[in-house]
Design a protein around this nucleic acid. Structure first.
Length: 556
RNA sequence: AGGCCGAUGGUGUAAUGGUAACACUACUGUUUUUGGUACAGUCAUUUGGGGUUCGAAUCCCUAUCGGCCUGCCA
C-alpha cells in the first residue's frame, strides 16, 4: 500500500519515467548512474541548481550513484577558483557526490581513441585555416564542402597528430577532425573538430598538453568511462546526441544514453553565464556572489535557504518545454521556508518617537516574545521595554479612516509582544512636523486582550534607550523588465535596475546581536534579513541584506 | 530557408483514449498580538483547422507560433 500524501510529493517527470522503464527492462542490470558535469568557468546559478537536483535526486531515488565531473577541456576560461566554488555550492545545496572526476583525467584515453579513429580512417588532420573551415562548413541550407586534406593518407594524419601532441606547431595551425559527412543536415556531423592546438597552461594538467580535445569529443566519452547510464543535459545538446552516439558506436564503448530537458529561465533576471559575467565585468554588481545575482552563492548571501531552492526546483519540474518561470515562484518558496524557520526580531526603519506618559522614567522591563510563533519549541527572547519607544512613522496618522488599523490620534493599537497603547497627543516642532507622540499604556493588556473593547491593529516597536543601530541593504530585482533579454532593440543591461541595492540604517532590538552570520531573521511586519559577515567587517556596522519582503496584504 | 525539438489558464507543472488536476500570482472572504501565516472561494472547454473513435489535451494530417543549430566555446 502506498501513502497518497507522500506520493503526490514525489516528482514524476518524463525523465524519471524513462529511467523507471529502463530499470524495469533490466538495462545495465538496473543500475542508475548520473553525473553533474559543469565547466569550471564561472559560478553556478539557479539553472544549475535544477540540473543538480535532478541528477542527485534521481540517483538517490533509484539507489544509484551521482558523480561530480568537471568538463575542463578549455584552459583558456577555466580556473581552480571555480572548481572550488562549485564544490562549495553543491554541498551547500545539500548534495554530496560519489566520485569527483575531471575530464582532464581522461586526456590520455581520449588521445588514444583519437588515434584509433584516425587508424580506422574516421578522422584526419586538417590544415585549413579557421576561415576556410568556417567557409567550407556550409550553412543551414547549403551543404559543406570536403576539406582538401580530408582524404590524406592515414599515416600522414597519424604523424601530424603526434607532432601536434609533441608541440611542434603553433596554435591554430591544424586540427583533428572526424570524417563523417560534410553534407549532413545536422551541422554537428559535418566533420566536427576533435582536437585543437592550444599551447596553454591548464589548471590541473599543467603544461603536459599543447593540444586539447573539444567538448564534443570529451563529454560523451567521459560519461562512458564513468559508466554513466543516464546522461541528463539541457536542450541545446539535442543536436549533439547523434555525434555522441557515433563516437560510442565507432569506439565500441559503454553506451551512456543522453536525455535532454529544458533549462530554467526566470523573469526579472538573466541566467546565462555569459550575461551574468557581463554584469560582473561591467561593475553593475559586486561580483558573482552579489546577493542580487541568481547564482547559488548570491542567493546564499541573500539568505535564501538551500531548502527553498530545492523546493523551487521541484515545483518548476522537468520538461522539454522552453519556459520562463515567474520569479514569484522562487520568492514564494523562500518565504515558505523562512516563515517556518526564521527567528523573529523587531526593527524600526523610519523612527517616530513615542513617550508613555504613565510609565516610570527609569523603569526598563524585559518583556518576552516568541522566537518563532510557528514553532513554539524555539522558545522566547527578551525584549526591553521602557518609557520612550520608537515606532514606524507610517504606522501613525493624525487622521485616518476605518480601513487604517494602526495608530491614530485618540486611537488604540497593540504593540507587538507588549501592551496596548492609546495616542493622546501629538507634539510638533515649529515647522509643523511631528516629533513625538504622547501615549497612554494600558498595563492590563500584556499577554491578554481587554474584554470591553477590540483593538485590531498591531505594530512593531523598539525601546529607544536600548536600540542597536544597524545597516540594512534593501535589495530588489536585477531588472526593471520582466524579460530583459527579449527586446530586440535594447541590450539587456539597459534594463538593469540601478535602484536594486540601497543601504539604509535601522534601529533594532538588542537581540539581533545573537544572530549568527549568514542567519536569516524576520523583522516582524517588514521582511526577512540575512546577517552578512563580510559587509560587517567592511562597514564596521551590524549589517543585514534584505532577503525578501513579507508579502503585502491590502491596506498597507 | 534546411534539420531537430516543442505547444495545456497571467506563470510553472499534472492528466498517457473515459470528460481538465495541483502550485504560484491576482482578487474575495474567515481567523489572527505580524495588514504575515493558516483556511475558504473566484479566474482555462488544452494554439487554429481537419481526421480516426462511442469517446481525444492525449493518436494521425495540416497550418501557425516558439526554441536550438553555421566557435579551433561548453
Amino acid at each position: 500500500m502506498s501513502d497518497n500524501s507522500d506520493n503526490s510529493d514525489k516528482p514524476d517527470d518524463f525523465i524519471r519515467k524513462i529511467i523507471r522503464a529502463n530499470v524495469a527492462e533490466g538495462l545495465h542490470e538496473g543500475r542508475v548512474h548520473t553525473r553533474f558535469p559543469p565547466e569550471p568557468n564561472g559560478y553556478l546559478q539557479i539553472g544549475h541548481a535544477k540540473a543538480i537536483c535532478l541528477n542527485f535526486e534521481v540517483a538517490q531515488e533509484f539507489g544509484g550513484l551521482c558523480n561530480l565531473r568537471f568538463d575542463d577541456t578549455n584552459p583558456e576560461k577555466e580556473s581552480e577558483e571555480f572548481v572550488q566554488a562549485i564544490q562549495d555550492d553543491i554541498r551547500w545545496l545539500g548534495f554530496e557526490w560519489d566520485k569527483l572526476c575531471f575530464s582532464s583525467d581522461y586526456f590520455e584515453q581520449l588521445f588514444e581513441w583519437a588515434h584509433r579513429l584516425i587508424e580506422q580512417g574516421m578522422a584526419y588532420v586538417d590544415e585549413q585555416d579557421p576561415d576556410a573551415i568556417k567557409e567550407n562548413r556550409g550553412s543551414l541550407t547549403e551543404p559543406g564542402k570536403d576539406s582538401p586534406f580530408r582524404n590524406r593518407p592515414t599515416e600522414e594524419s597519424i604523424e601530424l597528430f603526434n607532432k601536434m601532441r609533441s608541440g611542434d606547431f603553433q596554435d591554430g595551425a591544424m586540427v583533428l577532425r572526424a570524417k563523417i559527412d560534410m553534407t549532413h543536415p545536422n551541422m554537428n556531423m559535418r566533420d566536427p573538430i576533435l582536437y585543437r592546438i592550444k599551447r596553454m597552461h591548464h589548471h590541473r594538467v599543467g603544461d603536459a598538453w599543447p593540444i586539447y580535445p573539444s567538448y564534443d569529443f570529451t563529454h560523451g566519452q567521459s560519461d562512458s568511462i564513468e559508466g554513466i547510464t543516464h546522461s541528463l543535459c539541457s536542450l541545446e545538446f539535442e543536436d549533439h546526441r547523434p555525434l555522441y552516439d557515433w563516437f560510442i558506436e565507432k569506439l565500441g564503448i559503454f553506451p551512456s544514453k543522453q536525455t535532454e530537458f529544458s533549462r530554467l529561465n526566470m523573469t526579472y533576471t538573466v541566467v546565462s553565464k555569459r550575461k551574468l559575467r557581463e554584469l560582473v565585468d561591467n561593475g553593475l554588481v559586486d561580483g558573482w556572489e552579489d546577493p542580487r545575482m541568481p547564482t547559488i552563492a548570491g542567493m546564499r548571501n541573500r539568505g535564501y535557504p538551500a531548502l527553498a531552492i530545492r523546493n523551487f526546483c521541484k515545483t518548476v519540474g522537468i520538461t522539454k518545454v522552453p519556459s520562463i518561470s515567474d520569479i514569484a515562484l522562487l520568492e514564494h518558496s523562500v518565504r515558505d521556508v523562512l516563515n517556518r524557520v526564521a527567528p523573529r526580531r523587531m526593527a524600526i526603519f523610519d523612527p517616530l518617537e513615542i513617550e508613555l506618559t504613565n510609565w516610570e522614567q527609569a523603569e526598563v522591563r524585559d518583556l518576552e516574545g516568541a522566537i518563532n510563533p510557528e514553532d513554539a519549541e524555539k522558545g522566547l527572547r527578551k525584549i526591553p521595554f521602557g518609557k520612550t519607544l520608537l515606532i514606524e512613522q507610517n504606522d501613525f496618522r493624525e487622521e485616518a479612516n476605518r480601513k487604517f488599523f494602526r495608530l491614530k490620534l485618540g486611537g488604540e493599537v497593540r504593540l507587538r509582544n507588549a501592551y496596548i497603547i492609546r495616542c493622546d497627543s501629538v507634539v510638533k516642532n515649529p515647522s509643523g512636523n511631528i516629533v513625538k507622540l504622547l501615549c497612554h499604556v494600558d498595563l492590563d493588556t500584556l499577554g491578554k486582550n481587554p474584554e470591553d473593547r477590540k483593538v485590531k491593529g498591531v505594530i512593531h516597536w523598539v525601546n529607544k534607550a536600548t536600540a542597536v543601530e544597524a545597516t540594512a541593504r534593501q535589495l530588489g530585482r536585477l531588472f526593471t523588465e520582466e524579460k530583459p533579454e527579449s527586446n530586440p532593440d535594447k541590450h539587456f543591461t539597459e534594463f538593469f535596475d540601478t535602484d536594486s541595492s540601497k543601504e539604509t540604517t535601522m534601529l533594532c532590538e538588542p537581540s539581533i546581536l545573537d544572530l549568527d552570520y549568514g542567519e536569516t531573521c524576520q523583522f516582524e511586519r517588514i521582511g526577512y534579513y540575512c546577517r552578512d559577515a563580510i559587509k560587517e567587517a567592511d562597514t564596521r556596522s551590524i549589517y543585514f541584506n534584505q532577503t525578501i519582503s513579507l508579502k503585502e496584504g491590502s491596506g498597507k
